[in-house]
Design a protein around this nucleic acid. Structure first.
Length: 507
RNA sequence: GAGCCGGUAGCUCAGUGGUAGAGCAACGGACUUUUAAUCCGUGGGUCGAGGGUUCGAAUCCCUCCCGGCUCACCA
C-alpha cells in the first residue's frame, strides 16, 4: 500500500532519449516526416469509404472501383520498386499495393513506415495474381505513428509466429494483446457481446435497466468483505458494494416490477484464476414471479446468449459437451449431497452432527461455520464438480440464505437455487423474502453470527427493513456472475482472460 | 498465506562457473504481383533488483520484486 501511494505521488519520469535504438529510429522517422510537412500527429480526420472487411465482403461490386480505407500497418513487404503491406482495423485486414513509377518521389516515404503506424490510402480494388483482394494505392497519408515497435506476428494462413505469449505482458499491456492475438480479441469481444445480448434479452421482456449506488454506508446483499473508502466532505466511511440486491429490491418496492442492473461489484478477498477483486454481476428482480419462473428465464437467457453470440447452443469444456437447447436438470440440494456422499438430512440435524458429517467426507470446518455453511461446503467440495451439465440445485439452508423465502413445508431450507454449469456455479436465485417481520428476524440471526466473529455475516440494514415495511411484492430474483459465465462459454480457465484489465500487483 | 515453476535483445526462446547467442523485428544494399517474400551485410543486452561465494557468476547461495500453476481463502 505504501508503494502504491509513493508511486502516485512520485512517479518515475521516463525520457524517450533513454529508450532503445528501435525507438530512436522511429523518432528520427517522425522528425523526417515533420520536416517534409507531413506531421502524422497533425492529422485529425481521414474520410474512408469502407471498413477493411467490407472490401472483401463486397468485392464483386467494388472490383475496379476507387475506395478509401484506413488502418494500422500490420505487415510490410517491400520488393524494390513494388511494395505490399497489410492494413488492419477492427473489422479485419486488407492488403495494399504500391508501385514506384506511379508514386514518384512519394515512394520513398515508404521507408518511413513502420509496423503499427496508421495509414489512410485511396486506390482501386483488384485481385493479385495469387488471388488476394488488394487495394492498388494511388495516394496515401500517414495518420499516426507508432514510436514503439508493435509486436505484430508473422502470419501465413492460420499459422502465426512470434506472437506475444508472455502472460504478464498480455495482461499489463492488453492493448498489445488485443492487437496481435486474435484469440484474446475474440474472447474479450465475446464477453462484450454477451452483455449486449443479455440486455437485449431483458429489454425484450420489459425489464428496466437501472443504476444504483456503488458507495454505500453498509455493503450488503452477499457474504463478503467489502472495500472501505472515505468521503472527505461528509467525513465518513463508505463501503463499495458487494452486491446489487438491496437497492434493486428498494426499486421493486418503488413500483418497478421488472428491474435489472449489470454492474461492477467489489469484494475484498483473494485474487486467483477465478477471482478478481472487481467483477461484473447481473441481478434482476421480477415481481409476481416464483423460483420456477426464474429457472425458465435462466434457461432461455443462456440459450439466447449462446445462439446470438456464438451461433450455437452446444458448448464443450474439458471434453464435456452441453446443449442449452435442452432444459436444465433440477435436483434438490440434499438429494444431490446424498447421491454423492451418502449423507442425509439427518446427518446435519445439529451443528455437532454437521461437523461430524463434514469430517466424514474430509472437509475442514471453521469455528464460524453454521449447519448451512457446512452443507454448502459439502456441495462445493463433493458435489459441484459432478454438475457438468446445466443443473439447478435448489433448497438451500436457511442460515446461508437470509434474503430468501422459506420452503413452506421444510422451514430449515429456502426457496433458493444455484445454477451449475461445467461444475461451476453461474447463477443464484431466490423467491425473495418479502415479509418484513421475518426479514428482521433473519437479520437478527446474522447479527448474532457477526458478533460471534463471522465477518461475512449479513449486516443489519435497518433502512432496507424500513423500505420493506411499506410492502414488497412477491418476486423472483436472480444473480449471475458475468465473468464466470464468459469463462465457461469461451472455454477459458482464467477470469483474467475475460476481463480487459484484470487486477495486477504494481509492476 | 503455502508449495512448485518462471523473469536473458522490440517479440519468441536457447544458454548450469570461463569473452552473452539464434530466429523474427530493426538498420544498409539488391529486387515492379509479394504474402512467414527472398538474397547479402550491420547494429542491438543493467541476463528482474540487491547482496554473497569465487581468480571469474546469466549460471551457485541468500533476500526481495513481478508473474504463472496448484492448494488455502472465497455463497
Amino acid at each position: 500500500m505504501h508503494g502504491t501511494i509513493r508511486a502516485m505521488h512520485d512517479p518515475v519520469h521516463h525520457t524517450l532519449e533513454e529508450e532503445s535504438q528501435l525507438v530512436q529510429i522511429r523518432l528520427q522517422k517522425l522528425r523526417q516526416l515533420r520536416e517534409l510537412g507531413l506531421d502524422p500527429f497533425a492529422i485529425e480526420r481521414y474520410e474512408t469509404t469502407h471498413p477493411l472487411q467490407a472490401i472483401h465482403d463486397e468485392y464483386e461490386q467494388l472490383e475496379g472501383k476507387t475506395v478509401a480505407v484506413a488502418g494500422r500497418i500490420a505487415a510490410i513487404r517491400k520488393m524494390g520498386k513494388a511494395t505490399f503491406a497489410h492494413l488492419m482495423d477492427s473489422t479485419g485486414k486488407l492488403q495494399i499495393y504500391l508501385k514506384a513509377d506511379e508514386q514518384g518521389e512519394k515512394y520513398d516515404l515508404i521507408d518511413l513506415w513502420d509496423l503499427g503506424d496508421y495509414l489512410g490510402v485511396q486506390g482501386f480494388v483488384f485481385k493479385t495474381r495469387t488471388g488476394e483482394i488488394t487495394v492498388h494505392v494511388q495516394s496515401f497519408t500517414m495518420l499516426a505513428k507508432a514510436i514503439r515497435p508493435v509486436p505484430f506476428p508473422k502470419e501465413k494462413g492460420e499459422q502465426r509466429w512470434y506472437e506475444l505469449h508472455d502472460v504478464e505482458q498480455r495482461y499489463r499491456q492488453r492493448y498489445l494483446d488485443l492487437l496481435v492475438n486474435p484469440e484474446s480479441r475474440q474472447r474479450l469481444l465475446a464477453r462484450c457481446r454477451m452483455i449486449r445480448e443479455i440486455r437485449r434479452f431483458l429489454d425484450e421482456r420489459s425489464f428496466l435497466e437501472v443504476e444504483t449506488p456503488v458507495l454505500q454506508p453498509m455493503a450488503g446483499g452477499a457474504a463478503a468483505r467489502p472495500f472501505v473508502t472515505h468521503h472527505n466532505a461528509l467525513d465518513r466511511e463508505f463501503q463499495l458494494r458487494i452486491a446489487l440486491e438491496l437497492h434493486l429490491k428498494r426499486l421493486l418496492i418503488g413500483g418497478i416490477d421488472r428491474v435489472y442492473e449489470i454492474g461492477r461489484v467489489f469484494r475484498n478477498e483473494g485474487i486467483s484464476t477465478r477471482h478478481n477483486p472487481e467483477f461484473t454481476m447481473l441481478e434482476l428482480y421480477q415481481a409476481y414471479a416464483n423460483l420456477e419462473d426464474i429457472m425458465s428465464l435462466v434457461e432461455e437467457l443462456f440459450r439466447h446468449v449462446a445462439e446470438r453470440v456464438f451461433g450455437t447452443t452446444v458448448f464443450e469444456m474439458h471434453g464435456v459437451q452441453v446443449d442449452f437447447a435442452r432444459p436444465w436438470q433440477r435436483i434438490r440440494l440434499m438429494d444431490a449431497i446424498r447421491e454423492r456422499t451418502g449423507l442425509t438430512e439427518a446427518d446435519f440435524e445439529t451443528l455437532e452432527d454437521a461437523v461430524r458429517a463434514a469430517e466424514k467426507v474430509g472437509i475442514y470446518v471453521e469455528r464460524k461455520d453454521t449447519i448451512g455453511g457446512i452443507i454448502e461446503k459439502v456441495l462445493e467440495k463433493c458435489v459441484a464438480e459432478h454438475l457438468q451439465q446445466p443443473t439447478f440445485v435448489y433448497g438451500f439452508p436457511i442460515d446461508t440464505s437470509p434474503l430468501a423465502k422459506r420452503e413452506p413445508d421444510n422451514p430449515r431450507f429456502t426457496r433458493r437455487f444455484e445454477g451449475y454449469l461445467f461444475g461451476k456455479e453461474v447463477a443464484n436465485a431466490f423467491s425473495e423474502l418479502n415479509d418484513p417481520l421475518e426479514q428482521r428476524a433473519r437479520f437478527e440471526q446474522q447479527y448474532a453470527l457477526r458478533q460471534a466473529g463471522d465477518e461475512e455475516a449479513h449486516p443489519f440494514d435497518e433502512d432496507f427493513l424500513h423500505a420493506m415495511e411499506y410492502g414488497m411484492p412477491p418476486a423472483g430474483g436472480l444473480g449471475i456472475g458475468i465473468d464466470r459465465v464468459a469463462m465457461l462459454l469461451t472455454g477459458t480457465d482464467s477470469i483474467r482472460e475475460v476481463i480487459f484489465f484484470p487486477q495486477m500487483r504494481e509492476g
